[in-house]
């Protein structure tokens, strides 16, 4: 069942220097029970995309296009209606658990608030649900933790609390914005393991925002690669690693450590991402792309179109043969698989 449908979404921030198109014509969809990974480097618009869906953008932002949750259109929805959906039908997990919980409120108070904003239950009942929620994310002695303040918990425990809070009202859509980035490596693995378990239990559509392809490989069914506010490639996760189609994806894969021998320098995509204040005219990756043709720089960028590979789509002018050949060669995936 199709749960989230985003169609030609454009999110623009008003700044002192002019409008910045953080999200520029993004379309995607996620089914219930499916995990869609959105990958890209910092500033590519992945967080702006997730905040657009949740309706949490600052006042300086405007959005056009369409975001549908089930059958309901979210763009243009009144604030109060959107508020009723937030935390109930759609929930979000944020990047930094150290700052995402209110430091002067007890964990229990924050969880109970989340429940009672959306469910008509007694305080005692909400309390019971909150304890269950903490237990479900693997927090030991949840009764005691209810009385704790955030500073009494480790980063990993706080992120578990954030995850529990997001799941309390059984959302249909869960957006996780870099849920492991701020954690140390061991804790990252634990949180990923937890998310993998939860994935099986909750029948929600999950959008996982990350810059970590390792996380994508572990958790996602499908991946969308974002560059400078646009999706440049979309594919089932195995397909993306086996046959990456977009030169930017090749660069991302090539720059992963541990693929080309320990002693070698990590690969680096030449150049830097473009300013979204004055983006390049044609394909936004063209200035950094080794395969760019004249048309790439001058003509409007190609739309996301299906490739010969099953379920995959790419926004690139290169022909299928070149993409297949160079993709395997440059991203070094053949050696790994």
């Amino acid at each position: 069942m199709r749960l989230l449908t985003v169609d030609d979404l454009r999110t623009t921030f008003r700044t002192d220097d002019g409008p910045v198109g953080a999200v520029d014509g993004v379309s995607l969809s996620v089914d219930a029970g499916q995990v869609l990974g959105i990958v890209g480097e910092s500033g590519c618009g992945k967080s702006a995309l997730s905040l657009s869906i949740m309706g949490l953008l600052p006042k300086s932002a405007t959005i056009t296009g369409s975001i549908r949750l089930g059958e309901q259109e979210l763009v243009g929805l009144a604030g109060s209606e959107l508020r009723q959906l937030r935390g109930d039908d759609m929930a979000m997990i944020f990047q930094d658990p150290m700052t995402s919980l209110n430091p002067v409120m007890r964990i229990g108070e924050q969880l109970i608030e989340a429940i009672r904003l959306h469910q008509r239950v007694s305080k005692a009942e909400a309390r019971r649900l909150a304890v269950d929620g903490l237990a479900a994310v693997g927090i030991p002695s949840p009764e005691d933790r209810m009385r704790a303040y955030p500073l009494e918990l480790s980063g990993g425990m706080r992120q578990r609390v954030m995850i529990a809070m997001a799941l309390l009202n059984r959302p249909r859509l869960l957006i996780a914005d870099e849920p492991t980035t701020a954690l140390d490596v061991t804790t990252q693995a634990q949180i990923l393991e937890l998310m993998r378990e939860l994935r099986r239990e909750v029948d929600a559509a999950i959008v996982l925002i990350t810059h970590d392809l390792g996380v994508v490989a572990e958790l996602c069914d499908e991946v969308a690669v974002m560059y400078a506010g646009r999706i440049v490639e979309r594919a089932p996760v195995a397909e993306l690693f086996a046959h990456p189609q977009h030169p930017y994806t090749w660069g991302l894969l090539a720059s992963l450590p541990g693929r080309s021998g320990a002693e070698e320098r990590l690969y680096q995509i030449p150049g830097t991402p473009p300013s979204l204040l004055h983006p390049p005219a044609g394909c936004r990756f063209a200035p950094r792309c080794a395969f760019a043709m004249d048309a790439c720089r001058t003509d409007p960028a190609p739309l996301l179109t299906a490739t010969a590979r099953a379920g995959s789509a790419v926004a690139c002018r290169l022909d299928q043969t070149t993409r297949d050949r160079e993709g395997v060669r440059l991203s070094g995936t053949e050696a790994e698989r």
Partner: peptide, 14 residues
């Protein structure tokens, strides 16, 4: 602050 965004994400009113 991030926790204010969290409160909004919960669906808390202004």
């Amino acid at each position: 602050e991030d926790y204010v965004r969290t409160a909004r994400a919960k669906g808390a009113g202004e």
